[in-house]
């Protein structure tokens, strides 16, 4: 009979850990502070306090844990991203982010970065890296203010081809792309320059394209990695002219 009921024991009260699995007597509290985050017309994010709620007798610790949740709204007034965790700097999770959908599956910025960094089939999205660019503008539109620099970094580091036109996907009401609205025209141009350079170097250099990229890199000035884009392009032109 004992063999049939192995999951029953005299120590179930402590999950079969009678030494350290102590009864906490209702001291496990979890405090949540919840904020709404909206983007204003200038593209800045503003947080508004919603509520603080403390739950009693939850979890398996003694004391009070406190975590903050930021519900980030998109321009249409719907929640596009949820950040939650017990630290303002680390231990924050992005829960259920629905930033973009590639072939019916949700894609987040980290999915794309992971996919690009690993240089393999874009498994989470069920798509290949070559097509990920379609979702990039949308990813950047969902609160990833510094996502652009990460993305540029990983695009450069990975063996991936994304067309600059793909980066401009999703034109908004004011005529600018979602990406331009979110991270600024200069930065967008910088990323495009970097991507074009990578493509040019990878695909065999077309002098006309490379010169154009060089010009774009010069024009952006402060753009992300424009310096490396410029030097890469100059090297590409030199290599092409003196094979």
């Amino acid at each position: 009979m004992a063999e049939d009921y192995v999951y029953n024991s005299p120590y179930n009260f402590s999950e079969n850990r009678p030494i350290d699995g102590i009864e906490l007597e209702g001291l496990e509290h979890l405090s949540h502070t919840i904020y709404s985050v909206h983007k204003d017309t200038k593209g800045n994010y503003n947080a508004t306090y919603d509520r603080s709620v403390t739950q009693q007798n939850v979890g398996s610790w003694s004391g009070t844990k406190s975590q903050t949740t930021y519900n980030v709204y998109d321009n249409s007034g719907n929640v596009s991203a949820i950040y939650s965790g017990d630290s303002s700097n680390g231990n924050m999770n992005r829960a259920g982010i629905s930033l973009a959908s590639v072939r019916g599956r949700d894609v987040s910025a980290s999915d794309i970065i992971d996919g690009a960094a690993n240089n393999k089939e874009f498994q989470k999205a069920g798509d290949t890296l070559e097509n990920v660019g379609t979702g990039v503008g949308m990813v950047l539109s969902a609160g990833s203010m510094s996502g652009a620099s990460l993305l540029a970094k990983f695009i450069l580091g990975a063996d991936v081809v994304i067309g600059a036109d793909d980066l401009s996907a999703g034109v908004t009401d004011n005529g600018k792309t979602v990406m331009e609205n979110t991270i600024g025209e200069k930065t967008t141009a910088g990323i495009k320059a970097v991507v074009n350079t990578v493509n040019a170097v990878k695909g065999g250099v077309d002098v006309k394209t490379a010169k154009g990229v060089n010009k774009a890199a010069n024009a952006t000035g402060v753009a992300i990695d424009a310096t490396s884009a410029k030097s890469n392009t100059q090297k590409a032109i030199k290599d092409n002219e003196n094979p």
Binding site: Y35, V37, N44, Y45, N46, A47, T48, Y49, T68, Y70, V72, A81, Y83, G85, S88, N89, M92, R94, A109, G143, S144, M145, S146, G147, L150
Partner: peptide, 13 residues
């Protein structure tokens, strides 16, 4: 507020 890639400002209320 700086959380992951989110940068926001809270006017306390």
């Amino acid at each position: 507020i700086i959380v992951d890639t989110l940068k926001a400002v809270e006017e306390v209320s």
